[in-house]
Write a protein that binds this DNA or RNA. Structure first.
Lengths: 206, 206
DNA sequence: ATGTTTACAATCATTCATGTATGTTTGTAT
DNA sequence: ATACAAACATACATGAATGATTGTAAACAT
C-alpha cells in the first residue's frame, strides 16, 4: 500500500468516477457515501479526506464539465454580425455535436438534470443550470434582436418568444435524449430541429 | 374534534395538499412525512392511516392529474385524417392551453419532472412519464406517417426525426416553463413553436 | 535514523426518518 | 346504554446515513 501524491490523486479520481456511476444509477439523494466508497474500492474515510461531504463530491463532478448552455453562442456577441440567426444555427449544431462526442459530459449532465431534484432550496447544481439557461436566453435574445433590427426576423415571432422557443427546444432535445438513454441520434434530430426553427424565424425574401 | 366520514376525507385532502406543497418546495426525497404532517396540521399517524407510506402519498397525488403527454393527440388515431399534421398542431396547442389553465396540474406535473429523480431504479412517477412519452411518440409517428403517405411531409424530415423533434420541443417547453416558475407565457411561446414546427414539416406546394 | 505529515481505515456517537404498536376519542349501530 | 369500529395522536423501536474521532502504515523531510 503506497500513498504517494499520485496515488492520492488517483483515488480521488476513482472516487469521482464511482460517484458519477452511483449518482447516475440511483440519483443523488439515493446514493450514500458508503455505496460510492465501496464502488471505488475505498472506505468513507477516503472520501471524507478528499471532500467535505456529498455535496462537495457533487460539486467536484459538476466542475468537470461545461454545460451546453454555457457553450452555445459563446463569445462573438460584442461586435455585430451580418447573419445572427445563421450564427445561432451553426453554433447550436456545433454544441449538439460536442455533447454527442463527449460521454463524460453526457454522464454528468444527465446527473445534473435527471439525477437531482430541482427544488426551491436551490442546490448549486440547479442554480448553475438555471443561471446558464438564463444567460443563454439573454444571448439568444441579443442575437435575435440584431436580426430583428436588420429586418430578417419573421413577423410571426417576437424577439422574446423566439429566444424562449429556441431555448425550450434545445433543452428538451438534450433532456429527452438523456432520459431515453440516447435512444435516438441527437445530432440528426437536433440539426433538423435547429434548421427548422431558425428557418421559420427567417423572414422570407418577398 | 369530530371524526365523521367527511372529516376523514377532508384531512386526507389536506394531507395531499400539504404533500404537494412540501414536495414542490423540498423535492420528494427531501420531504419527510413529519414535515408534511405538520404542514397539514396533523401528525404522522393520520398520514399512515390514509396511506401506506410516502410512495403511496406521491402516487395518490399523481393519480389526480393527466399528463399533457397522455392528453395529446388522444384518440382520433384509428380512422384516417385528411390533415394529420393539422391535427397535431391543433391538439398540441389545446394541450398547452389546458395545462396553462390548471394550476393543480401544473403543481403535480412540476413535482413529477422537477421534484423527483429520474434514476434507473424507476419510480412509478418516472415510469409513468417515460411510458406516456413513449406512447406520445408512437402516436406522433403514426400521424406523421399518415402525412408522409399523403405526400405532405417535407422532404427534410423523416417520420422518426419529425416525431422526436416535436416531442422534444413540447417537453422542453413544459420543463422550461415550470423550471423558470412560469416566467413566460406557455401559450404564446407554445403556439408559435408548434405552428413553426408543423409548418416546417408541411411540404410546400410547388 | 527519526520525526512529521499524508492518506487513508476503522470505530463510534448522533441524528433522523421510518414503521409499528398502542392509546384515546368520537361516531355509529344495536 | 353498550359495544364496536373509525380516525386519528402518541410513544417506541429500528436502521440507515452521517460526521467526528481515532488508529496506522507509508511517504517525505530533516
Amino acid at each position: 500500500m503506497r500513498r504517494t501524491k499520485e496515488d492520492a490523486a488517483k483515488t480521488r479520481e476513482e472516487v469521482l468516477a464511482a460517484a458519477a456511476a452511483v449518482f447516475y444509477e440511483h440519483g443523488v439523494s439515493g446514493s450514500s457515501l458508503e455505496k460510492i466508497a465501496s464502488r471505488a474500492g475505498v472506505t468513507r474515510g477516503a472520501i471524507y479526506w478528499h471532500f467535505k461531504d456529498k455535496a462537495e463530491v457533487l460539486t467536484a463532478l459538476h466542475s468537470e464539465i461545461r454545460l451546453p448552455q454555457e457553450t452555445i453562442v459563446d463569445g462573438a456577441l460584442e461586435h455585430g454580425h451580418d447573419d445572427p440567426l445563421g450564427l445561432i444555427e451553426e453554433q447550436s449544431i456545433g454544441v449538439v455535436q460536442l455533447l454527442a462526442d463527449d460521454e463524460h459530459q453526457q454522464r454528468i449532465f444527465a446527473i445534473m438534470i435527471l439525477g437531482c431534484e430541482f427544488t426551491e432550496i436551490r442546490s448549486d447544481a440547479a442554480q448553475r443550470i438555471i443561471t446558464a439557461n438564463a444567460e443563454m436566453y439573454e444571448k439568444l435574445k441579443k442575437l435575435i434582436d440584431m436580426a430583428d433590427r436588420q429586418g430578417t426576423l419573421a413577423s410571426c415571432w417576437t424577439v422574446d418568444t423566439a429566444a424562449r422557443a429556441f431555448q425550450c427546444s434545445m433543452n428538451g432535445l438534450f433532456g429527452e435524449w438523456l432520459r431515453t438513454n440516447k435512444s435516438f441520434s441527437v445530432v440528426d434530430v437536433g440539426e433538423r430541429l435547429v434548421r427548422s426553427l431558425i428557418g421559420s424565424m427567417r423572414r422570407q425574401a418577398a
